[in-house]
Structure formats: C-alpha cells, structure tokens
Amino acid sequence: MNIFRILGDVSHLLAMIILLVKIWRSKSCAGISGKSQILFALVFTTRYLDLFTIFISVYNTVMKVIFLVCAYITVYMIYMKFHKTFDREHDSFRLEFLLVPVTGLSFLENHSFTPLEILWTFSIYLESVAILPQLFMISKTGEAETITTHYLFFLGLYRALYLANWIWRYHTENFYDQIAVVSGVVQTIFYCDFFYLYVTKVLKGKKLSLP
C-alpha cells in the first residue's frame, strides 16, 4: 500500500460521501444522473463478488462493503426516497450504448475465461465509462451545482491517483495489470475537460456553467 493508493481510496470515499451529503442535506438529487449511480452500483457488485471467495485484508473487505453500501444508498435516494426531485428528463443517456460494448469487450479481452474473472473485467471496463451519463447530463443542462462539481473532482482525482499508484507499483513491485491500467487511463481522460473547468471556474468561486 503506497501513499497514492491510500489517497486514491480516500478521494473515492470522499466523493461518494459528498454526493450522499448533498442529496441528504438538500433533500434533492437534482442535477445527479441516476443512470451513472446505477452503473457504479453495478460496477461494485460485479467487482466485489470476490468478497465471498478470497480474503485479502481487513482494509480491503471493509472498504468494499462501505463502497457497496454507499452506492446502493445513493441509488435508493435517487429512485425511491427523493425520486420526485430526480431530473429524469435530462438523464437521457442510452445505457445500452455503454453496456453492450462493455459486455462484449469483457468476454473478448480478459485474464481468464471464468465467470468471476469476466465479471471483474466487466466492472473495470464499465467503471471507465460509468460517469458518462453524468457528464452528458451536465452538458445537456449546461450547468452543475458547485457541490456536484466537488463530487466529480474527487471521483476524477481518485482515478488520477490510481494511475500514480500503478506507476509506483510497476517500479517497486513489478506489478502491472494491463486491463486495469488501460481502463484507468481512459477513465481519467474523460475527466480532463472537467478538471480544466473545475480549476478555471469553480476554484475561483464561479458556478460551473457551459457556454
């Protein structure tokens, strides 16, 4: 466990907590893509099936359970508890455009052709594109609440820190997982445009709105 990895995990956790706090405090999930949150719940569910098959560490198990619980509470808030505030009209990204290629690719390019391994690969590929419905929603409405941008910032930061973690692990342990690394790079690229807007607008006290 290196500093990039632990900071990455903390960013990831912080992102999910920021989102939950935003929804809970404002009693509203306006501006949040329910579809992205469903995809993240699906990502964690298919990736963490190894909770039943292998024990890695207390940290690993506890974090996985927390991530799963946070993801499902978020989905519950959006589609059940505060569903009246959910902006269904603007959350119109077609999920099949992501799910079909991701499913196909996870069958074609994986470490081994076993159910758990394919589901893990599926989760890695899906995570790399899961934020797209959210980014699509922002580009459609042309704006995002500042707290939503903080959520996106920490989610992107988590991925960028994981890249640093992989570079570190490659040099110190010769650890290298091609599927995770390539997907991680793709995922981080999706955030670059947003990072730019975050730094030039939100950090200067302006609301994120697109021209």
Binding site: R5, D9, H12, D50, I56, S57, N60, M63, K64, F67, H111, S112, F113, T114, E117, W120, Y162, N165, F175, Y176, D177, I179, A180
Partner: peptide, 10 residues
C-alpha cells in the same frame, strides 16, 4: 490463459 495479478485494489 493465466489469471491476472492478485486483485488487492478497490
């Protein structure tokens, strides 16, 4: 085909 590295990451 071999399985990938140990999946100790989240």
């Amino acid at each position: 085909e071999t399985e990938g590295p140990v999946k100790d990451e989240l």
